[in-house]
């Protein structure tokens, strides 16, 4: 459990940096070399390489085998894991609230119908 939590915080830490998120967004379109990844940023290749190491340690990217330029590519697994539970959580409450709204409306409608011929909407209220 601890190692799973560690892996998760490592993934979050890796994703907290905007440069690293931009690198991942670029890799979402296909593999790229360090030089290509460095191009959009005002950064040296060693600085980019440092970001790539963080992403690699978090298991978010991997290096290709081609000897010369060793392109980086995305590993989807950890992204799927951490996005999924927040996604599940978001969906849970959004849709539960929709259903709660419907339920409360039904209840309201039933009460109005049930007391249609009676001014007193609460049958238990003393007269």
């Amino acid at each position: 459990m601890d190692t799973q939590e560690d892996a998760l915080s490592q993934t979050f830490a890796a994703l907290a940096d905007p440069t690293r998120r931009a690198i991942l967004a670029r890799l979402a379109h296909g593999e790229a070399s360090v030089k290509e990844l460095a191009a959009p940023f005002d950064m040296t290749q060693p600085a980019i390489s440092k970001h790539l190491r963080v992403l690699e340690q978090a298991g978010l990217i991997e290096q290709g085998r081609q000897a010369q330029w060793r392109p980086r590519r995305l590993r989807a697994g950890p992204l799927r894991d951490i996005s999924e539970w927040v996604n599940q959580y978001r969906r849970h409450w959004e849709e539960s609230f929709e259903r709660l709204d419907s339920y409360l409306r039904e209840l309201n409608d039933r009460q109005e119908q049930g007391n249609g011929d009676d001014d007193d909407r609460d049958p238990n209220r003393p007269r």
Binding site: T11, F12, A13, A14, L15, A16, R21, L24, A25, A28, H29, L74, A76, P78, L79, R80, I82, S83, W85, V86, N87, Y89, W93
Partner: peptide
Amino acid sequence: IGHMGSAEAIEGALASGMIAGAIGTW
């Protein structure tokens, strides 16, 4: 109000969701 931990946790999770979406699996 769900306490998800840090701002980084939410940012990271939702950013990763967008990236995962771009890959086409999500």
